[in-house]
Design a protein around this nucleic acid. Structure first.
Lengths: 154, 154
DNA sequence: CTGCCTGCAAACTCTTTGCACGAAT
DNA sequence: ATTCGTGCAAAGAGTTTGCAGGCAG
């Protein structure tokens, strides 16, 4: 949930960008920024509908780019078919690596400040200017392997 | 193109795995390992059909996992909707980063030996065992920005 | 009022799959 | 002779888009 105060912030944000502050967009903003973890477009739709049941899937998909381009959200693509999103509470997200548990699908985010240095170094040698980088580690759960149970699932 | 010799190698390879050495599979193997650059499933289909025009899209998609699981090919997912593949001529591919030019879509591969160390370090802190890692940098072409022309396109 | 924004549903892209036929062993 | 493998076409999943109507500014 979010307070009327955050609504006003979103409203101003949209106006500043020359976009209209529709109830659907506001509901999607509320829903997205209330998420504690990574979420998918579909999950966002579900939650946004609890705020405004007129929100459609199309509008969610049309609003997500607005939020990511403005760095309100960070897009996290772990190559699983669907994209994940996450409120961009801290930093710009270019210095964050992900560790993905292949057993419970949980995505851990790890600070990796050397990443942008690496990106710049490697890009400049090729005559390129880095835009973004991603570092992802896919891993299996030791606990699940040893005891047959992962604390994050069953 | 490939010599009859490589055909025999593929034949033995398949037999060893308990799989049948069909003409379609051999054509796909030939086509895949003849690629100098990254390629998509669709491009592989096109080329494989110049060797054996009975090759179908379904068989390409069914053969790609056989080749990647055996490390003959490396799968490179840059989050662009379609997957890329590449003959795995050197190493195991777990120590290679990609630099993707957003202007010409070229994928440069860079040796990044520290990656597996990083994966292990970060995973163990979470009670996980790393399976694979990927490090990708997306970048823009300086030449295109400065002169309006990228040597890799027009 | 004007035209941006919306929901709906169809379209799209890439990939997977069910089925009956065909070929490798 | 057995199966495993194949092509075809349909199904899938996630996302995008054309259109007619609706609401913000």
């Amino acid at each position: 949930m979010s307070s009327p105060a955050s609504r006003d912030i979103f409203r101003k944000f949209l106006t500043r960008k020359g976009l209209r502050a529709t109830n659907q967009r506001l509901a999607i903003f509320d829903a997205a920024l209330a998420q504690p973890e990574h979420f998918t477009a579909e999950q966002l739709l579900d939650y946004a509908r609890t705020i405004d049941d007129s929100v459609s899937r199309a509008t969610v998909y049309r609003t997500l780019p607005i939020m990511t381009e403005s760095a309100l959200l960070r897009e996290v693509d772990i190559g699983s078919g669907e994209k994940f999103y996450r409120p961009n509470r801290d930093g710009d997200g270019t210095q964050v690596a992900q560790v993905v548990c292949l057993d419970c699908d949980k995505i851990y985010e790890i600070s990796a400040p050397f990443m942008s240095w690496y990106g710049s170094t490697v890009s400049s040698k090729l005559g390129l200017t880095p835009v973004r980088q991603r570092l992802q580690v896919s891993a299996h759960c030791n606990r699940l392997r040893d005891t047959g149970t992962c604390p994050r699932r069953g």
